[in-house]
């Protein structure tokens, strides 16, 4: 069983957690165990670290990308 780290801006509902675990289980091809952490600075969305790969779908990451583009 692989372990993934999930970061969110607010505590996730059970439904959201289930969706995440199913999605990543399909991705890695085996059952995954998720470790959840809350980081309000993310503002919204989630950041997942799976097998040293980072999947960043947070609002703060998007805003940072916009800021870099504006610069």
């Amino acid at each position: 069983m692989k372990t993934i780290e999930v970061f969110s801006a607010r505590p996730l509902s059970a439904r959201d957690r289930e969706k995440i675990e199913i999605a990543f289980s399909q991705k890695v091809g085996q059952q995954v165990r998720a470790e959840y952490a809350v980081d309000p600075s993310l503002i919204g969305g989630i950041r997942v670290i799976c097998e040293d790969e980072i999947f960043d779908g947070t609002v703060s990451a998007e805003l940072e990308k916009i800021l870099q583009d504006l610069k």
């Binding site: 919204g44 989630i46 779908g57």
Partner: peptide, 15 residues
Amino acid sequence: EDDSALIDQCLKEWK
């Protein structure tokens, strides 16, 4: 609800 929608969107993209 917005957050959930964002999560769904992310999962769809990653999938």
